[in-house]
C-alpha cells in the first residue's frame, strides 16, 4: 500500500483558464485538495463544471494557469492512473454492445500491455471492484439492460478497479435508485478513509451538506470556495445561480 502524506496536495489548480475556440468556459479557477477530502462542485449548467473536470483529466488543454496532480503534471498523472473519471449516465452510449465485466476491465487498460491482455491481478481487481458495488450477479449483463443506478455503479467499479487516488464524479446521484444512493454514500466514506480525494459535481444541495467537507461554487470562475459550513450559504448560492434565490431552486431552507 502506498503511504499517504495527508499534508501534500492531491490536486492543485492555479488560475486555470479554458477556452473553446475563443469562447471562455472557465477562467481564473483555483482549487486545492488534500487526501481524504471530499469536495462538491456546484454551479449551473454551463457554469464550467464539466470543463473543470476535463481540465483536470487532461481531456482539454488549459490556456492559462497550472495544474499539479500529486505534485506532478497532468500527463504523468495519466500515466500513473492517478485520476478516475466517473461519467454522467447521459454521457455514455448505453446501447454500446459491452457488458459490466468489460467496462470495469477498462479501468485496468492503462496499466496493461499494448494488447490489453488481462493478467491475474487485473482479473482480481475487476472481481473485487464489482463485488464492492454489489454487481456480482450482473457480470455479463450488457450495460443497456442495466438500470440507471446499476450503470452508475458499473462506472464506479471501473474507477475502483483503476485504483485511482483521485475520483472525479459527474452528477453521481442523478437518476439513481435509493439502494445505489446508499451504496455510493457508503463507498464515499470508505474512499475517504482510504485517503482518496473526491471531487463531485451535483445539483442536489442536500448531498453537498451530507458528504462534502469542502465546496467549490463556480460560475465560469470560482464564486466561493472553502469549508462547506462556511461557504455554502444562501447568499453564495444565489450568486452562483445568477441571482436566483436558493428557495426558488431547492424549496425553502429547513
Amino acid at each position: 500500500m502506498e503511504t499517504i502524506n495527508y499534508q501534500n496536495f492531491r490536486i492543485e489548480a492555479e488560475n486555470i483558464c479554458v477556452d473553446y475556440n475563443g469562447k471562455v468556459a472557465l477562467y481564473d479557477a483555483n482549487l486545492r485538495l488534500k487526501p481524504g477530502q471530499i469536495c462538491g462542485l456546484v454551479g449551473m449548467n454551463g457554469a464550467g463544471k464539466t470543463t473543470f473536470f476535463n481540465a483536470l483529466t487532461g481531456f482539454v488543454n488549459i490556456s492559462k494557469g497550472k495544474i499539479r496532480i500529486n505534485g506532478e503534471s497532468v500527463r504523468s498523472a495519466q500515466k500513473d492512473q492517478t485520476i478516475a473519471y466517473v461519467p454522467q449516465n447521459e454521457g455514455i452510449d448505453s446501447q454500446f454492445p459491452i457488458n459490466v465485466w468489460d467496462v470495469v476491465m477498462m479501468g485496468r487498460y492503462g496499466s496493461m500491455n499494448i494488447f490489453r491482455c488481462p493478467r491475474e491481478s487485473d482479473v482480481q481487481a475487476v472481481k473485487d471492484a464489482i463485488e464492492r458495488v454489489d454487481l456480482t450477479e450482473h457480470l455479463s449483463t450488457p450495460i443497456g439492460n442495466l438500470s440507471g443506478g446499476q450503470r452508475k455503479r458499473t462506472f464506479l467499479a471501473r474507477a475502483i478497479a483503476q485504483r485511482a487516488s483521485i475520483l472525479l464524479l459527474d452528477e453521481p446521484f442523478s437518476g439513481v435508485d435509493i439502494r445505489t444512493e446508499k451504496l455510493i454514500s457508503e463507498l464515499f466514506i470508505q474512499f475517504k478513509n482510504e485517503g482518496k480525494t473526491i471531487l463531485l459535481s451535483t445539483h442536489d444541495m442536500i448531498h453537498v451538506r451530507e458528504f462534502c467537507d469542502l465546496v467549490l461554487l463556480i460560475n465560469k470562475t470560482v464564486v466561493a470556495y472553502g469549508e462547506t459550513s462556511e461557504v455554502f450559504t444562501p447568499e453564495n448560492i444565489t450568486t452562483t445561480f445568477g441571482g436566483i434565490s436558493p428557495d426558488f431552486l431547492f424549496g425553502p431552507e429547513s
Binding site: 476535463n54 481531456f59 495519466q78 485520476i83 454521457g91 490489453r116
Partner: peptide
C-alpha cells in the same frame, strides 16, 4: 487486431481513455 480493444474504448468512452493515459 493490435488496437482492437483500445479502439473499442476510444469509441465507447474517449474521456476515460485519455484519463488513463491512452
Amino acid at each position: 487486431l493490435i488496437f482492437r480493444k483500445d479502439l473499442m474504448l476510444y469509441c465507447f468512452d474517449p474521456r476515460h481513455a485519455k484519463t488513463v493515459g491512452i
